[in-house]
Amino acid sequence: MSKAVKLYQISRKVHKWAELILSVVFMFVALTGLLLIFYTPLGLGTPLKTGTKADLSQSVTIDKVVSITTSQGLPGVTSIEDIFRIEWTPSENVYRVRLANNQEVQIDASTGEVLSTKPDYTGLLISLHDGYFFGNWYRYSALTLAGVSLILLSFSGYCMVGYPLYKRLMARKNEKNLRFSDQNVH
């Protein structure tokens, strides 16, 4: 059996088993990615409000943002430890405070007015999508294997498509060479 045929057979086996084993991880990452793309229309996130336009020097301090957030009476929110992330969006002049309990508080960066307090699942979706939710064991084992497998799947797929094309091209080339040599003999 030629090396090319062996490579083709090995490529098919690698492709099949890698896909079967890791398709669960690929599907999970794809599903959470789609949910992140369409999170606002699906009601999983809160659209960003618009704050009052003002100079940066008039912005509410982060200490004040924490104080405003913890004073909203939201369940499970009593201190800075309950805050997952604070984002500032300059174009809208809004602080978006994402809480550990999948809540979100939007605060006008100039006035300190609370613009919105609603559930927001984007933080959960992001942590599921990037593997942070499951811990480092998942991120550094399952997602690493998924990435390496995607490379192997791509390579084995190229081999499965490329090998038959290569064989056809070689057969045509040999056929043309035979015809050319037959014409020169006569």
Rank of each mutant, 00 (worst) to 15 (best):
A4M: 13
L7R: 01
L7N: 07
Y8D: 04
Q9R: 12
Q9S: 09
I10N: 04
S11T: 02
H15D: 00
W17Y: 11
A18E: 08
A18M: 08
I21H: 01
V24F: 10
V24Q: 00
F26H: 05
F26E: 02
F28H: 04
T32W: 04
L36N: 06
L36V: 09
I37N: 14
F38H: 08
F38V: 11
Y39H: 15
T40A: 06
L48G: 04
K49C: 01
T50N: 11
T50A: 12
A54F: 01
D55G: 08
L56Q: 07
L56V: 12
T61A: 10
T61F: 03
D63Y: 10
Q72K: 13
P75M: 12
G76H: 05
V77I: 15
T78M: 03
S79W: 09
I80Y: 12
D82Y: 08
R85P: 05
V94R: 02
V97Q: 06
R98F: 12
E104F: 04
E104Y: 02
Q106Y: 05
Q106F: 03
D108W: 01
S110M: 02
D120T: 07
D120S: 09
Y121D: 02
G123V: 09
L124P: 10
S127E: 14
S127P: 07
H129M: 01
G131L: 01
Y132V: 14
Y132G: 08
F133N: 05
F134E: 02
G135D: 08
R139C: 06
A142T: 10
A146M: 06
G147S: 12
S154G: 12
F155V: 14
Y158R: 00
P164R: 04
K167E: 07
L169T: 08
A171E: 07
R172L: 08
K173S: 11
N174H: 14
N174Y: 14
L178R: 15
F180Q: 14
N184I: 10
N184Q: 15
H186T: 09
